[in-house]
Simulated scan of single mutants.
Amino acid sequence: MVNGVEPLRDRYRREPGLRERKKLKAMRHIQDTALRLFAAHGFTSVPIERVADEAEVSPSTVYRYFGTKEQLVLYDESDPGLMRRFDELLVEDGPVEALRRVLGEFDDFLTGDESLMRTRIHFMLTEPSVRKALGSEVDQAEALLRDILAIHTGRGIDSLRLRVFVSSLVHGLIALVEYWHDTGYREPFEDLVEETFAMLENLEL
């Protein structure tokens, strides 16, 4: 078995059973522990062994679940559910409205433990190794969104219009997160989501 977080596409295709839900609970505990340690001591100052000790698991368990230290920041268990719900909503909504509704419905994504959310964002944007690894996560999300939208719209998976549309959506949301971080989180995240989607609503596929 390959160690580390499965590709987003694989997680999206499979609803978690009981065994996987137990694994997700363990991963959530390890990740929360790691983020609190990173926030207190800095990303580079906290080794995997310290995370494992604080989470009361073995270092091999951390590596088996996450693969890399960067994934302790980047991994988001809600991503597959967000994608599945987006797929469902496309039956009745256009892509921009469907994505807006998805983010509004997933309270954990928007209004969970905001301190941990801010910690993740901080290290995603400021820690070089994490920022570099983020590129792969974005690529996976864009590829899956193109697949989903190609099915619903009948457009070719490699069409320029589909690529530009998905890239505009994804990088619009990245710009939103960067703005929230760079302005010191002074505005409610939910308000910025609504403002961002008001700007994106004229995108057409």
Rank of each mutant, 00 (worst) to 15 (best):
G4F: 00
R9G: 07
D10E: 14
R11C: 02
R13K: 11
G17T: 04
R21S: 10
K22M: 13
K23H: 03
K23D: 04
L24C: 06
Q31H: 07
T33C: 03
T33F: 01
A34R: 09
F38G: 10
A39M: 09
H41E: 13
H41F: 10
G42F: 00
T44F: 13
I48D: 10
E49A: 11
R50G: 12
E56G: 13
E56W: 13
E56N: 15
S58E: 05
P59G: 02
T61C: 05
V62A: 04
Y63N: 13
Y63K: 13
Y63A: 12
R64T: 11
G67D: 01
K69L: 03
E70W: 00
Y75R: 05
D76M: 04
S78I: 12
L82E: 08
L82V: 07
R85S: 03
R85Y: 03
V91E: 15
P95Q: 00
R100Q: 07
R100N: 04
L103W: 06
L103T: 08
D107G: 15
F109L: 14
G112H: 06
I121D: 14
P128I: 07
P128N: 09
P128T: 08
S129G: 09
R131S: 14
A133H: 02
L134S: 14
L144R: 00
L144Y: 00
R146S: 00
L149G: 01
I151M: 10
T153Q: 05
G154L: 12
S159V: 10
S159E: 14
R163G: 10
F165Y: 02
S167V: 02
L173Y: 06
A175Y: 03
L176H: 05
P188F: 06
F189H: 11
D191F: 13
D191R: 14
E194G: 10
E195S: 15
F197K: 03
L200R: 06
